[in-house]
């Protein structure tokens, strides 16, 4: 690993000042992704600003029934938090389906939003990759694509966003609070991550000097929510397809629904088309299938990942069916 100058920030102000005017600086939270990428020489910061001691570790209830999650809350602490387990079971379940217990003890919420793809060609320095080296091409297209995307991809990049946590956040209408020496702003999670288009190396709407300070969730539309993850081994593997869903039904009709997909797109994929079809529709397996087909209508597969299109449809149906039958909490 290349060396760097190290700054430990005791407070947010120090952290923000340390990166202002420093074009090649990185914030270091739990380190579970950044340290690995630095060891692989994919990330090569000159300055590392350690933010792991910042006092952004609270989970607070907001007036109106929402919740504010400090950017440095550890994954394990968030998954175990009583507020999250009772009001947002989909979030607790999504976290517990991700990584390992050791990694969840280290990884932070803010860092999770910024984690980078696990595309093998991105990691392999000998392969062409438009994310790692803009303009060099994409070795994944025409390569081994089992873990690649079918929605929102481009001819320049088909990598997927690896997060489970973010898929739940997308379904829960999360907002991200970011801060820099220029001030504080908030943006919806749906606008935080960017689709690759012709600039796959631009992954988020975050400026280099901006720090994620919190994630806020509005009151849930229903506490009946669930996360379902399909993967190549039972635990400790990235998703082939995952579904975060919340469903409320009255008189046999869908009165509220939130759906997001993981493992299929370059960003946590809010399934707006499926939601539109479902709202007001009868809560039946047939309607779930119609909605899933509407969402996946625009999907395009490569040789190795076309199976994900049908797998995503079936996983959407199965998750909604589970919610319909029991709606159990985490």
């Amino acid at each position: 690993m290349r060396t760097f100058s190290y700054v430990s920030a005791p407070d947010v102000e120090t952290a923000l000042r340390a990166v202002a005017g420093e074009p090649n600086a990185k914030f270091l939270g739990g380190g579970t992704n950044l340290v690995d990428l630095m060891r692989e020489n994919i990330e090569r910061p000159d300055v590392v600003v350690d933010i792991s001691r910042l006092p952004l570790t609270e989970v607070e209830e907001l007036p109106g029934g929402g919740v504010r999650i400090g950017a440095l809350v550890r994954n394990s602490a968030l998954a175990a938090h009583p507020l999250i387990r009772t009001r947002y079971p989909v979030l607790s379940q999504a976290i517990l389906c991700g990584a390992s217990a050791q990694l969840r003890n280290m990884a932070t919420v803010g860092g999770n939003l910024l984690q980078r793809t696990r595309c093998l060609y991105f990691y392999d320095g000998a392969s062409a990759c438009n994310k790692r080296e803009p303009g060099s091409g994409c070795a994944a297209i025409g390569g081994f694509t089992r873990n690649h995307g079918v929605l929102g991809v481009s001819e320049h990049c088909i990598a997927t966003h690896p997060s489970d946590l973010c898929v739940a956040l997308a379904a829960l209408d999360a907002e991200v609070e970011v801060e820099s020496t220029r001030g504080t702003r908030r943006l919806p999670l749906s606008e935080f991550h960017r689709l690759p288009g012709s600039t796959p190396h631009v992954e988020t709407a975050l400026a280099p000097d901006e720090l994620i300070t919190a994630v806020e969730l509005p009151a849930p539309v229903t506490e009946r929510s669930r996360y379902r993850k399909v993967r190549d081994r039972a635990s400790y593997a990235f998703a082939l397809v995952s579904v975060a869903a919340a469903l409320d039904v009255g008189d046999g009709t869908v009165t509220a629904v939130r759906l997001a997909l993981g493992g299929v797109a370059p960003k946590p994929w809010r399934a707006v088309e499926a939601e539109r079809v479902l709202l007001g529709a009868p809560a039946t397996e047939e309607a779930f299938r119609t909605a899933a087909e509407a969402e996946l209508a625009a999907a395009t597969g490569q040789d190795g990942n076309t199976f994900k299109i049908e797998l995503a449809r079936r996983t959407i149906v199965a998750t909604l069916r589970d919610l319909l039958s029991d709606g159990s909490a985490a």
Partner: peptide, 9 residues
């Protein structure tokens, strides 16, 4: 708390 010491500076 258990952690992976390889990813910890």
């Amino acid at each position: 708390e258990r952690i992976n010491s390889c990813l910890a500076l």
